[in-house]
Design a protein around this nucleic acid. Structure first.
Length: 276
DNA sequence: ACATAGACCTGTTGGC
DNA sequence: TGCCAACAGGTCTATG
């Protein structure tokens, strides 16, 4: 499911449900997802209080009060949802969305408070994973070392990308998907950003840079396009194609704004429909 | 360094 | 209706 806007949407949904609460019990319904769970996962997080929810790239970060951080990646089909233990309905909250099969509820956080609350990680394809790291050592984690800048942050600009792309024959789409260049983009938002910048995905990344490593016009157009797409998608709650839900079970909305992704032949289809 | 293919999984979709 | 191939938002590895 998730590119950066979807993970950020999840973070914003989970934060008010989790922050300040204690993890009374962590239930693992299987031994692994993409990777085995850390052996000490349960004893590390149980009876700890959740301090804050963060995000880096497509990683969700759950900070605990002892300095440990739970690192969660949603893979292709991961989703999180919140349930009140007594099924009480909080404003804007929900029960399990219809498309979530409890068969794939792999991890359950039982939180303190009244009524008690469960936060559940569901992932049919199990490409997601959960790891642990001391917060102070996050940057050294293999998943984080070498990660490029956040698309909405100050570190991303045309000059920076020019240093990454200079001389490269690699297609610009491929270069944008490389998390070492920019963190958090995936297939959808790369397509959308390239479309907005009117750049072919097949164009060589190095073609957007002068031989001396200065950004050309196309790259200067691309950077704001990336920022705008990501910002708008976050505001829309991400894109729901199949799996992605906000943590309250409602749909993301940005798919209605797609200009490029999943629109192969749509102009032709429109013409045909109009002619009939 | 890069492109490509295959791997990991299950669920949905579209064509016949 | 049923079957089956193709495909899906993400990485990671092997191979050329």
């Amino acid at each position: 499911m998730p590119e950066l806007p979807e993970v950020e949407t999840v973070r914003r949904g989970l934060a008010p449900a989790m922050e300040g609460r204690r993890i009374e019990k962590l239930v693992l319904n299987r031994a692994d997802l993409r990777f085995p769970f850390p052996e000490n996962l349960v004893e590390t997080v149980e009876r700890k209080t959740i301090v804050a929810l963060g995000r880096r790239a497509k990683y969700l970060l759950i900070d605990l009060d002892d300095g440990m951080t739970i690192i969660a990646h949603l893979g292709m089909s991961g989703s999180w949802r919140v349930e009140e233990a007594d099924n009480a309905q909080l404003p804007g909250w929900f029960h399990a969305p219809r498309n979530v099969n409890a068969l794939h509820d792999h991890v359950v956080f039982q939180l303190s408070g009244s009524p008690a609350r469960r936060v559940i990680y569901n992932d049919p394809r199990r490409f997601g994973f959960i790891k642990l790291s001391p917060k102070s050592e996050l940057e050294a984690d293999p998943g984080f070392a070498g990660l490029g800048p956040e698309p909405t942050g100050n570190r991303l600009d045309a000059a920076y990308l020019a240093t990454r792309f200079v001389g490269k024959t690699q297609a610009i789409k491929s270069a944008l998907l490389d998390q070492r260049n920019i963190a958090g983009l995936g297939n959808i938002y790369v397509c959308e950003a390239l479309w907005r910048a009117r750049l072919s995905p097949f164009r060589a990344a190095g073609h957007l840079v002068t031989p001396t490593g200065r950004p050309k016009g196309g790259l200067k157009t691309l950077v704001p396009a990336i920022r705008a797409v990501i910002t708008e998608a976050i505001e829309a709650g991400g894109s729901t194609l199949r799996d992605h839900r906000k943590t309250d079970g409602t749909l993301g909305y940005f798919q209605h704004s797609f200009s490029a992704y999943d629109r192969t032949g749509s102009l032709a289809r429109t013409r045909i429909a109009a002619a009939l």
